[in-house]
Design a protein around this nucleic acid. Structure first.
Lengths: 212, 212
DNA sequence: GACTGTGAAGCCATTCACAGCT
DNA sequence: AGCTGTGAATGGCTTCACAGTC
């Protein structure tokens, strides 16, 4: 077991394994093999074992893994046992949808505030989450100790919002705006570009010519 | 120039280059070098050239690339010149947001219909896009010749919706439900898991211990 | 007998470095 | 002189295959 340089692909898969294990646990399944996990998530048994091996030895030879136990390990590896607080900037369609997205809460994320500069929205709540003016960003982030910010504003404001988030003390940013933004080295940044995902699909369709 | 096996990472980057070139074109910039593209999107010049080299020779030695020309090439490579029609299943928060998302239209995608089984929503429109009962899926897909379907329903219905989409003749599916679904080999599938993206951030935070 | 954990091999993507044009 | 296009080298991820353990 070594630590540094774990492939990002491994992290993505761990996240998927964890979701799957949570399902199995709910069904009351106690033990599982790497082969069954692979089957359940669409991967290979060796890959599953290798992914886990980066972090320790969680299984029993000849038997497999304890579902709940393994899931707890992965949850800890992913840092999900810390109860992260999230702020979202942008209360438009996408920002509103993300604020109310149940999948975040299920995985231990709590959206504590949304920010917008539309005076008609300020003071309202989305599913109990208050909408603040963007001028309150720093204050709320400090007070709530939010460490993650989500950018859901139009592209042209994205860099500006990112700067505000960083200045407010956020340590990780998930950017939904389709633009390249830059943040200091000590802040984690990930981009989710919704159109890019469609474009990958059309590339593959165009390549294979299997449409129509 | 060879064709088969282009890395997916290359496609993602081409998509980003194209967005960047579109911006430059709007600003009236005519020529650009691989180094400048790299700078603009956060990559390396060699990577830019290698990505483009999979598909042909688009530049001029000693000079660089013509912005508009290169962008047209990439748009064609990605298959975006075909005017794809998209249907979205699920008119909840996320489905509604995606339906009204401007970034899709800007890249040549047209959302032609949304489907839901909530009788209160059926007949309404979202930004001009009609909401149909899910029973009309096949009919509308055929009539509109939609080739792409987006799944924005809760996990437990995702596989069912995927089956319906396939059966209706859709050739590519973008799945926003956090569950593993399977489709026939001739249908393209991509998953966008919103929570996974946050989990990668928390993993990195937990690893570096640079939060708080 | 079954399944994990892991070094080694194989494969794929990125980076380097330079020849080839303009 | 400057920048592209590309074979060669490097680095990283995945798959293989088997020793180790229950």
């Amino acid at each position: 077991m070594k630590t540094l340089k774990i492939p990002e692909a491994t992290i993505i898969r761990l996240s998927v394994y964890s979701r799957y294990l949570t399902q199995l646990d709910k069904k009351g399944i106690v033990n599982i093999s790497s082969g069954e996990i692979a089957e359940g998530v669409g991967g290979s048994p060796a890959q599953v074992r290798k992914d886990l091996a980066y972090f320790g030895e969680f299984g029993t030879r000849g038997v497999g893994y304890n579902v709940r136990d393994l899931n707890q390990h992965i949850i800890r590896i992913l840092g999900l046992n810390k109860g992260w607080k999230v702020v979202i900037v942008g209360a438009g369609n996408l920002g509103s949808a993300l604020t109310q997205y149940k999948g975040f809460r299920e995985r231990g994320f709590e959206v504590v505030a949304v920010f917008d500069n539309d005076v008609n929205k300020i003071g309202l709540t989305l599913n109990g989450v208050p909408i603040f003016p963007i001028t309150k960003l720093r204050e709320v982030v400090k007070e709530q100790e939010a460490r993650i910010g989500i950018i859901a504003v139009p592209s042209k404001y994205a860099q500006d919002v990112a700067d505000h988030l960083v200045e407010s003390g956020v340590k990780a940013i998930l950017n939904f705006a389709p633009s390249v933004i830059s943040v200091p080295e000590n802040v984690e940044l990930r981009n989710v570009d919704l159109a890019v995902n469609l474009e990958i699909l059309t590339f593959n369709l165009a390549l294979k010519k299997n449409y129509d």
